Measured scan of single mutants.
Amino acid sequence: MDTYKLILNGKTLKGETTTEAVDAATAEKVFKHYANEHGVHGHWTYDPETKTFTSTE
C-alpha cells in the first residue's frame, strides 16, 4: 500500500488529508467521497510523481 495525499482548495473548506491505498484509482474514490461529504465539488488533478490529488473550486 502507498500513501496518497489530497489538497482541498474549496470555497468553504481548505486543507489536506492522506489515505493508504493499493493504487491511485482507489485513493481517488476515497478522496472524492471525502470531498463530496464536505461539500467540495471542484476540478480534480493528480500528480503521479508525488501521489497528490488536488481539488479546486
Rank of each mutant, 00 (worst) to 15 (best):
M1D: 05
M1R: 10
M1Q: 08
M1K: 13
D2M: 13
D2G: 09
T3F: 06
T3E: 08
T3V: 13
T3K: 08
Y4I: 02
Y4M: 01
Y4V: 02
Y4R: 00
K5A: 04
L6C: 09
L6M: 04
L6W: 04
L6D: 03
I7Q: 05
I7M: 05
I7N: 03
L8P: 00
L8K: 00
L8Q: 02
L8A: 02
L8H: 04
N9C: 14
G10C: 08
G10K: 03
G10Y: 13
T12L: 12
T12N: 14
T12G: 09
T12M: 09
L13W: 15
L13P: 04
L13R: 05
L13Y: 15
K14Q: 13
G15F: 15
G15C: 15
E16N: 06
T17A: 12
T17N: 05
T17C: 15
T17F: 15
T18C: 11
T18I: 08
T18H: 09
T18S: 11
T18D: 04
T19P: 01
T19A: 08
T19F: 11
E20P: 06
E20H: 10
E20N: 11
A21L: 01
V22N: 09
V22H: 11
V22S: 12
V22I: 13
D23W: 00
D23T: 05
D23P: 01
A24I: 09
A24R: 10
A24Y: 13
A24C: 13
A25Y: 10
A25R: 09
A25H: 10
A25L: 10
A25M: 11
T26A: 14
T26D: 10
T26R: 05
A27M: 00
A27G: 00
A27Q: 00
E28K: 07
E28I: 07
E28Y: 15
K29N: 09
K29S: 10
V30M: 10
V30G: 04
F31M: 03
F31W: 00
H33N: 12
H33F: 11
H33D: 14
H33W: 10
H33Y: 09
Y34C: 05
Y34R: 01
N36Q: 14
N36S: 13
N36P: 02
E37K: 11
E37I: 13
H38M: 15
G39P: 00
G39R: 05
G39H: 07
G39W: 07
G39F: 06
V40S: 04
V40C: 04
V40E: 05
H41T: 10
G42D: 04
G42P: 04
G42I: 06
H43V: 15
H43A: 12
H43W: 13
H43F: 14
W44P: 00
T45S: 12
T45F: 08
T45Y: 08
Y46V: 01
Y46P: 00
Y46F: 08
D47I: 05
D47W: 04
D47G: 01
D47C: 09
P48R: 06
P48A: 12
P48I: 08
E49N: 11
E49A: 13
E49S: 11
E49R: 09
K51Y: 06
K51C: 04
K51V: 01
T52W: 01
T52D: 00
T52A: 03
F53E: 00
F53N: 00
F53H: 01
T54G: 03
T54C: 08
T54I: 07
S55R: 03
S55V: 15
T56G: 04
T56M: 07
E57C: 05
